[in-house]
Amino acid sequence: DEEIEKWIETLLKRNISLRVNGKDLEIGSEEFKEWVEKFIKEV
């Protein structure tokens, strides 16, 4: 979905790490990609 890709790009540009389930996810890491894929499937 384009919306999500733009959102991810924005996050990448800002180099933010997300806190997911109490863990810091490094943007661009494998864990982050897995989380994004799960997130996309749920939406």
Rank of each mutant, 00 (worst) to 15 (best):
S29P: 05
W35R: 01
G22H: 02
K41R: 12
E30V: 10
L18H: 01
R19Q: 05
D1R: 15
R14Q: 09
D1G: 11
K6G: 05
E30W: 12
V20S: 04
L11P: 00
E5D: 11
L25A: 03
E5P: 07
N21P: 02
K38G: 05
I4Y: 09
S17W: 11
I16S: 06
K6Q: 07
E26D: 11
R14D: 05
K6P: 02
E34W: 14
V43R: 11
L12T: 03
D1P: 10
W35E: 01
K23Y: 12
S17H: 09
E26I: 12
E3A: 12
E30L: 12
I27N: 03
F32L: 05
E9P: 00
L25W: 03
E37D: 08
E9F: 11
G22D: 04
G28Y: 05
K13E: 05
R14T: 08
N15P: 11
L18Y: 01
G22C: 13
L25I: 10
L25F: 10
K6W: 13
E31Q: 09
V43K: 07
R14W: 13
L12G: 01
N21G: 04
K41M: 07
K38T: 08
S29Q: 06
E37K: 15
D24T: 11
E2M: 11
K41I: 05
G22K: 03
I8Y: 04
I4L: 12
S29A: 05
E5G: 07
L11S: 00
K38N: 06
E5N: 12
E30I: 12
E30K: 12
E2P: 09
L12Y: 05
D1C: 15
V43A: 09
E31C: 12
R14V: 04
E42G: 10
E42C: 15
K41N: 05
D1Y: 13
E26C: 15
T10G: 05
I16F: 02
K38I: 05
D1K: 13
E34D: 10
I16K: 06
I4G: 02
R19N: 04
W7K: 02
L25G: 04
G28I: 04
E2V: 11
V20F: 06
K23I: 11
K38Y: 11
E31R: 07
L18T: 00
S29Y: 06
E26R: 11
I40R: 08
L12K: 07
V20L: 13
I4S: 03
E31I: 06
K6M: 07
F32S: 00
L12A: 03
V43S: 08
R19Y: 06
K23M: 08
E31W: 09
K6I: 08
I16R: 06
E42N: 11
D24Q: 12
E34T: 14
S29K: 05
N15H: 14
R14E: 08
W35K: 01
I8G: 01
L12M: 09
L11T: 01
L11C: 09
E42R: 14
E30M: 12
W7N: 00
E30P: 13
I8N: 00
